[in-house]
Design a protein around this nucleic acid. Sequence first.
DNA 1: ATTATAAAAGATAAAAAGATCTTATTATAT
DNA 2: ATATAATAAGATCTTTTTATCTTTTATAAT
Lengths: 153, 153
Amino acid sequence: MMLSRASKYAILSTLFLAEHSSVEKKISVKVIAESIDVPSPFLAKLFQQLVRGKIISSTKGPNGGFYLNESNGKRNVLDIIENIDGLTKLNDCFLGLNECDSENPCPVHFIVEPFKENILGKFRDKTIMEFAQEISEKGRVLTLKDITPKVKK
Amino acid sequence: MMLSRASKYAILSTLFLAEHSSVEKKISVKVIAESIDVPSPFLAKLFQQLVRGKIISSTKGPNGGFYLNESNGKRNVLDIIENIDGLTKLNDCFLGLNECDSENPCPVHFIVEPFKENILGKFRDKTIMEFAQEISEKGRVLTLKDITPKVKK
DNA sequence: ATTATAAAAGATAAAAAGATCTTATTATAT
DNA sequence: ATATAATAAGATCTTTTTATCTTTTATAAT
């Protein structure tokens, strides 16, 4: 249940686009990378894949950039993870057993399983758009930058 | 919440020792590696660290091997993970934010947090010995091998 | 004491993940 | 039409994780 960095960056930047972009207002990789504090060449690669997966949209050229269209906004967080890491990573046995189910459970199966189901459900049922709404209404952090500046020495 | 392979191997093999070894009955890396189907040189390295961390015990020489003593058995699963991966990995923000707490939450903070607390508690409160007891009483799988043999073609 | 056995330690290798760089393409504004 | 701004694609480099190999050290049995 620990995501790759790629997936983390993907979720953050997609939510960032959900909040700040639109068909009329596209945003460049560079701006997004700086906002969420992520290496921009890496994010560029990632975005290519997200575009192919129809998680986000893009247009090239002047005033081009990345944005979310109507249907992008209806995708969910699990779609993003699936597109980058694949779902096996999330569904696989916590201890890595090849076969682990209620018939042949690993030692932690009945501890982990209920959580997994529940949390995956939450990531599946809430759309990116709905997340974005909560982000702007309630205030959520969308950057890897330090936000509480340390006191100067 | 996804462990490294090292941690997974460590948990499986420690539980294996809990069930099958004792001060009088030590077990060699080779036997354990074959039982749980894990590369034995890798497991050997891992065991060195677990011994240093007082998760398991060892003696060299003829009839030597690895085993759990009384106090080893009182450790918990979280101790193992801490010894191999460290706890930061488990405690860190799901989306990788540097600072993420209820004051400055990431977009999934309030979804993930309750689960994390709960599951970590379960891994902290149950001793290795108790796990081993459940394993032998209720039957749990402790190997990466395929257990349901595929039908021959 | 000698020998066989098993872990400890250290050095090395291979694979995967993460990050970067360079060169196309494409689309738009002029 | 042309220059330009931005993504797309592919090649390459670095770091971390996983795995292996070799040598040394400790221990117990004989």
